[in-house]
């Protein structure tokens, strides 16, 4: 890796192969890199290897061969006790929001800060800031059950953002939302990206990929089959 890459590369996969038990191949000799500040879609059919790629980045699984780099750190070389600190550099957004039902909007976001040892004072100033940013300034005391799907996902995004990660990974963040709501969530992601956070998003939505006109990486049967700078959504059967 040369000097320029070290300064600008956020994610790098070097010839990465993932093999699960029963010899199922998750990823097959995949190589690509994503620069800091990029907004990249990861698409492919079910079983193509998208989740495997994400789990490599969050250090949930290790590659069978090859290396995964994040912000200059070899993720597959991390010692177990370093992994939590590695994960603090990444904010993860889920398709099903994963909010805690017995906590308010505020508490759901504050939890993320409590976990990393933030002080009460930091939490009290930072959480309302983030909630305003995602457009939920007025809903801090509500419980997730009283929010719309779009609002719940905004809470999920706020929680992923609150510790100021340098990378946001979103696994089908609009999969459970109608298309109007999905567009407004995508606008939020674009705004977050404009402010400098790298975004890697898994999606099945052709419309979203085409509308956004961002880089698209296509996986199929664990292999990288396309990587378009300004891509459109096409998966050949």
């Amino acid at each position: 890796m040369d000097f320029v890459q070290e300064r600008t590369v956020m994610i790098q996969f070097d010839n990465v192969t993932v093999v699960y038990k029963n010899n199922v191949t998750g990823l097959d000799k995949v190589s690509f890199h994503i620069d800091k500040g990029e907004f990249v879609f990861l698409v492919g059919k079910t079983g193509a290897g998208k989740s495997s790629a994400i789990k490599l980045l969050t250090a949930e699984i290790k590659p069978f061969s090859g290396d995964v780099w994040l912000d200059g750190v070899k993720v597959n070389g991390l010692k177990n006790r370093k992994i939590p600190f590695h994960r603090r550099k990444i904010g993860v957004v889920f398709q099903d929001f994963r909010l805690l039902r017995d906590k308010t909007v505020y508490e759901n976001v504050a939890l993320a800060m409590e976990i990393v040892g933030a002080s009460k004072k930091q939490i009290r100033t930072e959480v309302p800031n983030i909630l305003r940013l995602v457009g939920l300034g007025q809903k801090t005391r509500e419980y997730p059950s009283s929010l719309s799907g779009g609002e719940q996902q905004r809470v999920g995004i706020a929680r992923a953002l609150v510790n100021r990660p340098s990378l946001i990974i979103a696994d089908e963040p609009t999969g459970n939302l109608d298309s109007a709501t999905a567009s407004s969530i995508m606008e939020l992601f674009e705004e977050i990206n404009r402010q400098g956070t790298t975004i890697l998003m898994v999606t099945h939505s052709e419309k979203i990929v085409n509308d956004m006109n961002k880089r698209v990486i296509v996986l199929d049967h664990g292999m990288l089959v396309r990587d378009d700078k300004k891509g459109v959504y096409t998966i050949e059967d």
Partner: peptide, 16 residues
């Protein structure tokens, strides 16, 4: 379970 899952992704240490 859900809370632990979230904690893991946010970077909670095992001891926490």
């Amino acid at each position: 379970k859900d809370e632990i899952h979230i904690m893991k992704y946010v970077g909670a240490t095992a001891s926490f």
